[in-house]
Amino acid sequence: MRTLEFLASRLGKAVLVVIGVVVLNFLLIQLAPGDPAAVLAGEAGAGDELYLAQLREQFGLDRPLHVQLLSYLGNVLSGDLGYSYRNQVPVLELIADRLPATLLLTGSAFVFSLVLGVLLGILAASRRGTAADTVIMTGALVFYATPLFWIALMAVLVFSIYLPWLPPFDMETIGAGYTGWRRALDIAHHLVLPTVTLGLFFTATYARITRASMLEVMSLDFVKTARAKGVQQGRIIRRHVLRNAILPVFTLASVQAGQLVGGAVLTETVFAWPGIGRLMFDALFQRDYPVLLGVFLVTAIMVVLVNLAADLLYRIVDPRIETAA
């Protein structure tokens, strides 16, 4: 019962947060210089007064700001995210087209970094002070500190150009016309470089957090007791230490999960991945307000939902935590 109450009150707040985000975004965007009509005219290298006026009228930019805001809010509440100024396609359609690609990429990177990061963290903690620990921690430090785009470029250079093992960009082989399993394999092949690139930073973070948290737990009395009882080392690590040490990792994972939608702009650019991050980036430069607001909205909803899910999951991960409303 308490869970249900908690859920209802959190959902109510979530709706308010999302509306707040929409209003704030709408107003923030207006602060950027230049409007979509000017950008379109600029790109075309031409544009007289009438052309600009026609565009502004078509986009509804000639109306007062509060009218635009209210009409946008009304449309959003009725599920209509508007038309892209630039592409003249419904925003919802553009987002729906791009969302799966991004979720596939960020989802893979999430799983990759979580699994690999935690495994490396455990390995380092359980072999503390050995060569393996040093290698893992040095690697983690390097990838934690290296900019993403540089890793991406180097990965392409090494694995696509010097060693032609992996495709350097695109989501699938264009024009090959693969279907079924062949296509899935093809996409998986294309997925490797962007996933690793995107996932390395979080892998490093998970490894460090897991190790630190495990070392802390390992020094606690109940671990000594277990060891004194003669429990095997592997079992101690799995059942006693890891379970108690996983909470900070979980918190961090929920942060990463919140970035599932908007966190891959750079990776998508370098690897020509047709995702939503790239859509947002382009829309920003083109002042394509409806698309930009649409992506922000989807991102905000995603973050709110992930946070909610994380709060609920805490109880399962660590039953000692009460879901206080």
């Binding site: 392409v156 696509s160 350097p168 960009f169 264009i174 650019t269 020509a272 790239r278």
Partner: peptide, 22 residues
């Protein structure tokens, strides 16, 4: 028979695309 116009947003990747024959 066919024309493909690829979308490759990063300029370094576009150079790679030509180099690799894509």
């Amino acid at each position: 028979d066919e024309l493909y116009f690829r979308i490759i947003p990063d300029s370094a990747s576009r150079a790679v695309a030509f180099e690799r024959g894509s």
